[in-house]
């Protein structure tokens, strides 16, 4: 890493938007962790006498089609969405980055084979891959995460490979080669740290995309199993009541929006802070 860690933190803290994003994420994470303490009601407790009630003092975000408290469901839904985002990106990066590094650095037939596989996977529409994988694994949250992770992996491999190639032709790497460093040393010491920024950018985008993908799969009925809430499955249920009970669609939608936005802000800040070429 070309910039000392302390400097990176300092740079990050100078960006109000990034810090705000981090605060919101910390907020979301604490909400997810402390959900049972925060939620005013049991998120699965039904009440047939209070179906689709508009927001009120008792139910700040109203009640849903089964008379459950929407606020409590949004609070508990944070668990599913955050988990889905983080786990699927970890899966994707865990597969994609080593593969990309390997392809970009070794070249030759390894690169050719990996690249063709990535081409093939990227050439299939992302959501179709995810849908087919989820259908195969059986619709539930864990399988949705695996499906999203696997379908996202080629993007990481692409980015890691491209960054490796770009860095590989840079002067200081060429210099490292020319003074007789072994291949692995060049890869680990000089190449790997420099592909962190683009991979981070990709991870940011993918976190956002993964949370949205979870919502999309749930929107198609392929995500979280009822009655446990996730923001996506709440939107799925809200579809039928858009005109009569818009709050059912608005609040989970806003929660997704805020959460994803915060990840994006933090990712932006991190990238700039990590960028060795930054001012």
């Amino acid at each position: 890493m070309s910039a000392p860690r302390r400097l990176v933190v300092a740079r990050f803290l100078r960006r109000p938007a990034a810090v705000a994003g981090l605060v919101v994420i910390v907020l979301f994470v604490s909400v997810a962790v402390l959900a049972p303490l925060i939620a005013p009601f049991d998120p699965v407790a039904t009440s047939w006498s209070a179906i689709r009630k508009a927001p009120s003092a008792a139910h700040w975000m109203g009640t849903d089609e089964n008379g459950r408290d929407v606020l409590s469901r949004v609070v508990f839904g944070a668990r599913a969405s955050l988990l889905a985002g983080v786990v699927s990106v970890l899966i994707a990066a865990g597969i994609g980055v080593p593969a990309g590094l390997l392809a970009g650095f070794s070249g030759g037939w390894i690169d050719a084979v990996l690249s063709r596989l990535v081409d093939a996977m990227l050439a299939c529409p992302f959501l179709i891959l995810a849908i087919a994988l989820t259908a195969f694994l059986g619709p539930d949250l864990t399988n949705a995460m695996i499906a999203i992770g696997v379908s996202t992996a080629p993007r990481f491999m692409r980015v890691a490979r491209a960054a490796t190639l770009e860095v590989g032709s840079a002067d200081y790497v060429q210099a490292a080669w020319s003074i007789g460093n072994p291949g692995w040393r060049v890869a680990v010491r000089h190449v790997a740290p420099n592909i962190v920024p683009p991979v981070l950018v990709q991870a940011t985008l993918s976190l956002a995309a993964a949370i949205i993908a979870e919502a999309s799969l749930s929107f198609l009925g392929l995500g979280q199993q009822p009655p446990s809430p996730s923001w996506g499955s709440m939107l799925n249920a809200a579809q039928r009541f858009l005109t009569q009970a818009p709050w059912l669609a608005v609040f989970p939608g806003v929660a997704i929006f805020l959460c994803v936005l915060s990840f994006n802000l933090v990712g932006d800040g991190l990238r700039d802070a990590l960028d060795p070429r930054g001012s």
């Binding site: 009925g221 009822p226 799925n236 249920a237």
Partner: peptide, 8 residues
């Protein structure tokens, strides 16, 4: 079957 009304 995973349609919204059947799930509800």
């Amino acid at each position: 079957p995973n349609t919204p009304d059947q799930a509800q």
